[in-house]
Nucleic acid binder design. Structure first.
Lengths: 347, 347
DNA sequence: ATGAAAGCGCTAACAG
DNA sequence: CTGTTAGCGCTTTCAT
C-alpha cells in the first residue's frame, strides 16, 4: 500500500494563488473554471499569480466538492494485446479532447479480476466506465450501477443488462467469410476461437455456418486465451487427423497460434489449408502468404463508445442502445484457391 | 469538460457506515485501513455494515486528507505500440500488487504533448510518474519535481536530469549485432531508426559501428516515427541505388516498414539483404524467413521501474540510479549467410 | 461582481 | 481502545 510521502513539498493551493492575486479563493475558482464572470483586471491578476506560482489545480479536491468527475475508467482484458491497445489509444484521444483522463486496468480475461478491478476503478469515482467484458455477463455491473456510474460495453456486448453496447456485425461478416471460403473451393472448415462462452465467438461460429450451409462441413475448436494454448490446441487437433482444408481463426491470438501450428505440422497455406483470420494487424500483410482477414473498425468503435459514454454522463436517459458496426473482409493470398498454388508450384 | 451528473445517486459515505455500525467514522476508517487496532466485535459490525451498504471508499477524499496517494501516472509515446503496451501491462500488474492504480497517457512522441499530458497527470496528485520520454530531455521535468512527484524514466534515459533511469545495453548489444552480421558475410550495413535525436537510436547506431569497425561499411537512415514514414524513407533510399547487403532496423516500427519496403523492391531476405531488428514480437517468429532480433527484457524493465518508483515514494533519497538491463540477440534465418544470389550490388 | 463561510468524504490529532 | 473535532483543496451557496 501507499507509503509515506515525505518528499512532497507543499504545493501552492488555491488559497496561495488567491492571496497572491489579492482576491478570494472563490474568484480564483471562477477565473479558472469560467463559471461566473470576473472583472478583466482580476482575471489578469489571477492568471499572473497562477503563472508565477506554477499552480496546478487539484482535480481530486475539485471533484469532491463539485461532484463532477473528469476521469473515466477503462477495463480491457489485456492492454498488451495490440487490438485492445489500439482501442485504448483511440479512446484516450477522444477523452482528452473532452477534458477527461483515463484510468486503465486489465482483467486478464478473468471474471473475478474483472469485478475486483471494476471496484478499484469505482474508488476513484469516475464519471463513467468503458468496459470490454470477459464474458457475456458483465460481472459487477450492479456495483457500478449502484454507484451511479455510467457503463458502456464494447466488443463483447453483455446480455440481459441494460447497458449501451458497441460491437461489430460478427455473424454477418463471418457468413461472408464462409461464402468466400466455399467460393475458393474449401469444403471442410475448422473455426478456432477462445471459448464459446464468449458471445462474439459464438456469433462468429454461427455466421460461418450460415455462410457455408450445405456447401461445406464445419467444426469448432475452443482453444483458450493464450498464444501457447491456441498453438497447442490446434496442434493436437491436427495430430488427430482429418485435417480440414481451411481454418477460420476467430481472433488475432488464434490466428498467430494457427500459423505456428501449421508451420510445425508442415502444412502449407493456402495449398494445404486456407486461412482467414478475424482481426487484422500490420504484420498480417507481410507474412507469407499475406493473410486474408476481417478488419474491425477499431477507431469507429472507440469513438462511438466514448461519445455514448459522454452522452450518458451528460444525462442521456434514453433506453440502452446497441450499435453494431460493419467489418470489412480484406482478401489476400492465404485464402486463394488451393489449385492455383499447386499449379504454380508444379511449374 | 465534465457535464452534470444528475444520475449520480448519493453513495454511502463513511458516515453512513459508521452510523449503521453504531461506531464513529474514525473507527470505520481504522478498520478499513488497519491503522489502529480495533476491538474484534466492532470490526465485525463495521465489516457487516460495509457489506450491507455496498460501501466503496472514496480514494480521492482519502488522499486529500491523508496526503498519501495510491495512484501513479504512466506516460508513454503510444499505447497502441505493442512494445509499450506490454510494458504498461507489466507495470499494471506490479502496481496493482502494491495497491496502486495507474493513470496512463500517451504523448504521441511529441514533446509539447508530453509536457501537457504530464501536467494533466499532476492534477491528480499521483505519488509518482513513470515516463518513457520522447527525446533526451524530459520536457516538463521541473514541473513534476516542483510538485514533489517522483519520476522514473524508462527506455530512453534523459540526460542532465537527476532522475532514476531504466534502460537496456543498447550499444553493447548493437555491437553484437554488428559482429554477427560481419560474421555472416555482410559488408554494407544500413541502420534504420526513427531519429538520432533519440539517445537510444544514437547508441544503437554507435554500437553497430563498434561491432563492424574496419570490417563493413555502415550508413544511418533516419526514417521517422510512423510505419508509413519508415516504409517510404527506406523505399526512397533503396531506389537511390547502392543497395546495402544488410539492414539493422532500430525499433519494431522500422522493422515492419523495412519488410514492406524490401518486398516492394523485390529484394529477398536473406539472399539479397540480411535483416536484424531491434525489438522482438511474436509475429517475427512466423514471417518468412523468421527474423533475427534483439529481445528487450520488457518484463524486467517494467518491474525494475516500478520497484524504483516505489522506493522513491517510500522516501529513498539516494542519488539517481541508472540501470542498464541486458538484451539478448535471438538469431533466426533472416541474417543467415547470403547464398550465391547476387541481386544486391555491394558497392 | 466579489467575498465569507460552509462542507464534499475522509483521516489525523487529541481527548478521554 | 474509541469518539470528537478540525481541516485537506476545492466549489458553492449566501450575502453584500
Amino acid at each position: 500500500m501507499a507509503a509515506e510521502q515525505d518528499g512532497t513539498r507543499k504545493l501552492p493551493s488555491i488559497r496561495t494563488v488567491a492571496s497572491r492575486a489579492g482576491v478570494s479563493t472563490a474568484t480564483v475558482s471562477n477565473v479558472l473554471n469560467a463559471r461566473r464572470s470576473v472583472a478583466p483586471e482580476l482575471v489578469a491578476r489571477v492568471r499572473a499569480a497562477v503563472e508565477e506560482l506554477g499552480y496546478i489545480a487539484d482535480h481530486g479536491a475539485s471533484r469532491l466538492r463539485s461532484r463532477r468527475s473528469t476521469v473515466a475508467g477503462v477495463l480491457v482484458p489485456d492492454i498488451a494485446n495490440p487490438f485492445f491497445g489500439m482501442f485504448v489509444a483511440v479512446l484516450e484521444e477522444a477523452a482528452r479532447r473532452d477534458g477527461y483522463d483515463l484510468l486503465i486496468v486489465s482483467s486478464g480475461d478473468d471474471a473475478e479480476q474483472e469485478t475486483a478491478r471494476l471496484r478499484a476503478l469505482l474508488t476513484w469515482r469516475p464519471a463513467g466506465v468503458i468496459v470490454i467484458p470477459c464474458g457475456d455477463t458483465l460481472a459487477g455491473y450492479e456495483i457500478a450501477a449502484a454507484a451511479g456510474v455510467k457503463v458502456v460495453a464494447v466488443d463483447r456486448i453483455p446480455q440481459g443488462i441494460p447497458v449501451d453496447g458497441i460491437g461489430v456485425n460478427n455473424r454477418e461478416i463471418s457468413a461472408e467469410v464462409g461464402r468466400h471460403l466455399v467460393a475458393r473451393g474449401r469444403r471442410n472448415i475448422l473455426a478456432v476461437g477462445s471459448s464459446l462462452a464468449i458471445g462474439n465467438v459464438g456469433d462468429r461460429w454461427a455466421g460461418l455456418r450460415d455462410g457455408t450451409e450445405g456447401e461445406a462441413g464445419t467444426e469448432m475448436l475452443e482453444a483458450g486465451f493464450t498464444l501457447a494454448d491456441n498453438r497447442e490446441a490446434l496442434a493436437a487437433r491436427l495430430a488427430r487427423g482429418g485435417v480440414p482444408d481451411a481454418l477460420f481463426t476467430l481472433n488475432n491470438v488464434a490466428t498467430l497460434g494457427a500459423i505456428e501450428a501449421l508451420q510445425s505440422a508442415g502444412l502449407h497455406v493456402p495449398q494445404d489449408v486456407g486461412l482467414v483470420g478475424f482481426d487484422d494487424a500490420d504484420w498480417m500483410h507481410v507474412v507469407t502468404p499475406p493473410l486474408t482477414s476481417v478488419i474491425q473498425p477499431i477507431e469507429a468503435m472507440g469513438r462511438a463508445a466514448w461519445s455514448r459514454l459522454l452522452a450518458r454522463i451528460g444525462g442521456d436517459t434514453s433506453p440502452p442502445q446497441q450499435l453494431r458496426l460493419p467489418c470489412r473482409l480484406e482478401i489476400r493470398a492465404s485464402s486463394a484457391l488451393a489449385r492455383q498454388f499447386h499449379g504454380a508450384a508444379a511449374d
